[in-house]
């Protein structure tokens, strides 16, 4: 049966090439075009490509975030035991549903008990999405290829089968991104007036309709601005538009920006914790009055931080009192 085994081997190599490489995608695309169907994406076989629809769906969730009562509801002993935060619990429920929550929690407890190196929440979410055996395969492959932290999702994602990787992205990447966002607090006193909300507006300086990629908060010069969440300082610099400008990377594709400050108290690369004093507000850059521009981005796309305003009240931060009468015009500044 040498001939048959040779033919079987050849078929296996060709099928693998067809299903796992862009060359195969191109061949499949040619067949699809010939049949009048939609050709597959040539970049779909690359592991870093985040499907656009995933970003859209998460932006949709961010548009109607859960209330503070939901996010800051007390944790159960089981949740505390595996190191969950309220934001993680709320994000998992929002992304995967209440039924999945109990399953992921049980998996977290099991993984924690097994003493695995990687983050238990991440591992539990992935195991829930793809199964323990498939995850273990990917971890083993990453370890064999010499990855430094094979247990981490980012290190072994490329070794998952395509469908499993998509399912795991939805469970792991999106849940943890949501948890990161849900954990953010308002950078100044939430009672301070929002003078210009997120969205398209007629720009007072440029005299044109322009997307305002954040919110302007009316606070006097010198008001302490706090980090909205844990993260790393990505930028801390002055430019003519944003003035003194601090950008924080919170991980999982979430970043926040604080503009027009009077003085900065952090440096690029520095780690900050939620509530840390990062800047004094001011009116530097393209600004017609004292205010803080607060922006929030997910995977580089601006999202409205406005719905998270009430979160600040429950963030247990040592925030200063809101000024009685901030001197800021309503439509004053460049975003």
């Amino acid at each position: 049966m040498k001939g048959w085994s040779e033919l079987l081997l050849l078929t296996g190599v060709l099928v693998a090439c067809w299903t796992r490489t862009p060359v195969g995608s191109a061949a499949a695309g040619a067949v699809a075009l010939w049949r009048g169907e939609e050709p597959p994406d040539l970049l779909a076989t690359f592991s870093t490509e985040l499907p656009r629809q995933m970003q859209d769906s998460i932006v949709e969730v961010l548009g109607e975030p859960p209330t503070s009562e939901q996010v800051f509801a007390p944790l159960t002993p089981e949740e505390l035991a595996v190191g969950w935060t309220p934001a993680v619990r709320t994000a998992v429920a929002a992304q995967l549903g209440e039924e999945a929550l109990a399953e992921v929690l049980a998996l977290s407890a099991r993984i924690e008990a097994e003493g695995e190196d990687s983050a238990a929440v991440e591992a539990a979410l992935e195991t829930w999405a793809v199964g323990a055996e498939v995850r273990e395969r990917a971890v083993r492959r990453a370890r064999a290829s010499g990855e430094a932290e094979p247990g981490r999702y980012a290190s072994h994602r490329r070794f998952l089968p395509d469908e499993a990787a998509v399912a795991a992205d939805e469970a792991v990447e999106q849940s943890l991104a949501l948890a990161t966002v849900f954990d953010l607090a308002w950078p100044v006193d939430p009672e301070a007036r929002v003078s210009s909300p997120f969205g398209y507006r007629f720009h007072p300086v440029l005299k044109t309709n322009k997307l305002h990629e954040g919110v302007d908060i009316a606070v006097p010069v010198g008001t302490a601005v706090h980090a909205a969440g844990d993260g790393q300082v990505q930028r801390a610099r002055f430019d003519k538009v944003n003035g003194n400008y601090v950008k924080l990377d919170h991980g999982h594709g979430v970043s926040s920006a604080y503009c027009h400050g009077e003085a900065m108290h952090v440096e690029k690369g520095q780690q900050v914790t939620r509530g840390q004093h990062v800047m004094d507000s001011g009116s530097t850059g393209r600004s017609t009055g004292p205010h803080l521009h607060f922006g929030l981005r997910f995977k580089g796309r601006p999202v409205d931080p406005g719905p998270f305003r009430e979160r600040g009240a429950a963030a247990a931060l040592d925030l200063p009192e809101a000024p009685a009468d901030p001197v800021v015009p309503d439509e004053a500044v460049e975003g």
Binding site: M1, K2, G3, W4, E6, L7, L9, L10
Partner: peptide, 13 residues
């Protein structure tokens, strides 16, 4: 059939 399969496989090596 084995000979034919083998020939086909070798042809497409």
């Amino acid at each position: 059939s084995d000979r034919v399969a083998g020939g086909l496989a070798r042809f497409a090596t």
